[in-house]
């Protein structure tokens, strides 16, 4: 029965990515826009509103546990050579964008809280 869990993830993925592809086509860009995001939203809905058999849950949990090994494998197939070869422009453009975006995280979070509180207060 565990495999049913894998089947549920697969179903979410195909529905989500298809929706993302249709959305991309509609706005005229290639690939898909937010396909995995839609699939995740489906998975969230299933988690929160559908009662699943424990064995089915174990199947989903199994893939979820493989997530970090998959990310480690993903890191090992990056084109790190070209990242280093790009020279100053690539390194500075990518590097400053990363560092500055990281620094922006607490600011946006704070703005969000402020906006929410304001909304509730008003």
């Amino acid at each position: 029965m565990e495999v049913v869990g894998l089947g549920i993830i697969a179903a979410c993925m195909f529905v989500g990515v298809t929706v993302g592809s249709v959305l991309a086509k509609t706005i005229g860009v290639s690939g898909d826009v937010g396909g995995v995001g839609f699939a995740m939203l489906l998975m969230v809905i299933i988690t929160n509103y559908v009662k699943l058999d424990d064995k089915v849950k174990n199947g989903i949990q199994f893939i979820s546990n493989l997530y970090i090994p998959i990310i480690v494998a993903m890191a090992a197939i990056q084109n790190v050579v070209s990242a280093l070869k790009g020279g100053a422009v690539a390194f500075l453009a990518g590097g400053i964008a990363t560092v500055a975006s990281l620094a922006l995280v607490p600011i946006i979070v704070k703005l969000g809280k402020f906006g929410n509180n304001g909304g509730v207060g008003a």
Partner: peptide, 16 residues
């Protein structure tokens, strides 16, 4: 193992 297919499959499962 590290390609986009399994990565996306696993990312979706984390939403569980």
């Amino acid at each position: 193992l590290g390609g986009a297919m399994l990565r996306d499959f696993a990312i979706i499962s984390t939403a569980f």
